[in-house]
Computed example of a mutant assay.
Amino acid sequence: MTQDLLDRLTIRDLIENWALWRDAGDWERFATVWHDDGVMMATWFQGPAREFIRVTQEGWDKGVSILHFLGGTSIDLVGDRAIVQTKMTISQRGDVQGVLCDVVCTGRFYDFVEKRNGRWGLVLRQPIYEKDRVDPLDPMAKLHLDQAAMATFPKGYRHLAYIQTQIGYAVKLDMPQLTGTEVEQLYTRGASWLAGEKLGA
């Protein structure tokens, strides 16, 4: 087996472990997928991975239900750095104005991954939010969404942002979507980082 193939298999394993361990509440192993300076970006949280783990545990204990499902992965590998894109869905269950619903958002994880001292780990995870929808668990339930409030959220994660604000989260409104300035800037940032530049803010 070549080193290139071994690295790619290890990276893919890392990405899959993130979803499995996070969604299973296996916090000790979940912490191992990150480097110490790892950063997580999400609609409802932006900051150090260690803080992300803490607030995710707190949400878990309060009954917040957010699950992930992964699809195909594309890895751009240059030496000890990689940009990894993985198709995914984020599924969040919660109360929307008295109706229990599932919100499903389809997109990609865009990950900055690096090998340090022989170990691959996540440096930055930035999801790309492509489209979403909301479905009542009871198909006969009548769901009345506040259309004015909905219109204030980005199209790619409008329903996800809506349900997250309903349960008290402050949602970031300029996350990358399928197209637009934010995702183009992300691609540029990824290419620069692969070329050896510092990650920066």
Rank of each mutant, 00 (worst) to 15 (best):
V113A: 08
D76K: 08
A148Q: 13
I128L: 07
A42R: 01
Q46R: 14
V96D: 00
H144K: 10
R81C: 09
H35E: 03
R50Q: 10
T73K: 08
L100S: 14
R116N: 08
G79H: 07
L124V: 00
D135T: 11
K115Y: 12
V103P: 02
V39T: 11
Q147R: 15
H144P: 00
G38M: 11
K142P: 05
V39D: 02
R54V: 04
V123R: 07
D138G: 10
V39G: 01
L122N: 02
D26A: 11
W44P: 02
A148W: 07
R108I: 03
W27P: 01
L9C: 07
V99H: 05
V103Y: 00
H35W: 06
V55R: 06
V39S: 00
A24S: 14
H68V: 01
L137I: 14
R133G: 02
L122V: 10
V55F: 06
Q92T: 13
D138A: 09
H35P: 02
R108N: 08
E114A: 04
L143V: 13
F69Y: 09
G71L: 06
G118I: 11
L143G: 14
P127R: 10
V104F: 07
Q3K: 15
P136F: 13
R29Q: 15
L77D: 01
G72H: 14
G98K: 05
Q92N: 10
G98W: 04
G121Y: 04
T106F: 12
Q85S: 08
W21A: 08
Q46L: 07
K62S: 15
A49H: 03
L100R: 15
V39N: 03
M40C: 06
L67E: 01
L124P: 00
G38E: 07
G59W: 00
Y110L: 00
D36P: 06
S74L: 09
N17P: 01
G79W: 06
D4W: 13
I66V: 15
V55S: 07
A31V: 06
F109N: 02
I66H: 15
C101N: 04
V134P: 00
T56C: 02
N117D: 14
T10S: 15
M140W: 07
L137F: 12
V96K: 01
K142I: 10
S74M: 05
G59F: 02
V123D: 00
A42G: 04
P139E: 08
R133H: 08
I66W: 13
D111M: 07
L70H: 11
T86W: 00
Q85T: 11
A49N: 07
Q3H: 12
G47M: 05
D13F: 12
Q92C: 10
R125N: 00
L100F: 14
A31C: 08
D4I: 14
W21Y: 11
R93I: 09
M88R: 03
H35F: 08
A19I: 12
R50G: 01
E130I: 11
R29M: 14
D80P: 08
D111G: 03
F52W: 12
R93P: 01
T86R: 00
L137P: 08
T56L: 00
R108Q: 13
T10L: 13
G107S: 09
D13L: 09
M41Q: 15
